[in-house]
């Protein structure tokens, strides 16, 4: 690809300067492109995920979208009800009380009943670790559990809420400051088949417990009672804000 050479001599200084600047610019662009290509994908989010993982993430995002859409519709409906409320604050009061009732079930300040599972974890030798219970609770929440409590045979019980922790204490468990000793019974309200399936997946909770030398039994019921409540604590540091 021979370029014309004869005009080179005729170039003025000015033209040389422009050509030089253009060349510099193009070399710069090339360098940038090279660097961009080399660093491409290096720190891209999710790039280490495998395709099945990505499909799972997408499914999860679909679930999230549906959840938020449902809430938006719910809020719009409640807003409309509030706007069209001509009989003073009567309906608003009713609505606030209903919402408080719903949230109280989730917050654990009232007892709850509904379909669910009772799960007994028993061990002769080794005691279930706090981690196992953290795992179990996480798995149950993932399967849509709405209310949970843990109790032992001595009548001690604790409601499991957002801020519930599990810690080892001696031979037993410390759950939110309440000391329990085995065997432990978890009572959970939610969709029984979904929760049962979540616990029984290969390598899941049931496998882990059995491998650890403990026994676990799961029973589905049409109605279980989660009677343990927690007092409505007043958060002293987390202040509501706008």
């Amino acid at each position: 690809m021979s370029e014309s050479n004869e005009s080179e001599a005729a170039h003025t200084k000015r033209r040389n300067a422009i050509a030089g600047a253009l060349t510099a610019l193009m070399v710069g662009i090339s360098g940038f492109a090279l660097a961009a290509q080399l660093s491409r994908d290096e720190d891209k989010e999710f790039s280490a995920a495998r395709e099945p993982d990505l499909v799972q993430i997408l499914d999860s995002l679909d679930a999230r979208r549906e959840r938020i859409r449902a809430e938006i519709e719910d809020l719009q409906e409640r807003q409309r009800a509030l706007d069209s409320d001509t009989q003073g604050s009567e309906a608003a009061l009713e609505e606030a009380e209903k919402r408080a009732g719903d949230l109280a079930i989730l917050a654990g300040t009232v007892g709850a009943k509904g379909p669910g599972l009772s799960i007994v974890i028993e061990s002769d030798t080794k005691h279930p670790t706090p981690e196992l219970l953290v795992d179990t609770v996480a798995e149950l929440r993932g399967a849509g559990a709405e209310a949970m409590q843990i109790s032992d045979n001595n009548g001690a019980s604790a409601r499991i809420v957002t801020s519930t922790y599990f810690a080892a204490v001696g031979e037993g468990l410390d759950v939110d400051g309440i000391t329990l000793s085995g065997p432990y019974t978890l009572t959970v309200i939610g969709d029984p088949p979904t929760m049962q399936a979540a616990l029984s997946i290969p390598g899941g909770i049931v496998d882990t417990v059995r491998r650890g030398g403990s026994k676990i039994s799961i029973d589905a019921h049409d109605e279980v009672n989660v009677s343990a409540t927690r007092p409505p604590t007043h958060p002293s540091h987390a202040q509501p804000t706008d």
Binding site: D85, S89, A92, L93, A96, L103, A107, T109, H234, P240
Partner: peptide, 28 residues
């Protein structure tokens, strides 16, 4: 809507507390 009556104010206070407890309300 609820600030007008004393029963409304009570219901509201209960609700706000629960909202903070379950994580619906923004906190600082």
């Amino acid at each position: 809507a609820l600030a007008g009556s004393s029963s409304g104010q009570r219901a509201l206070a209960d609700l706000r507390e629960l909202e903070a407890l379950v994580g619906v309300a923004k906190v600082r």
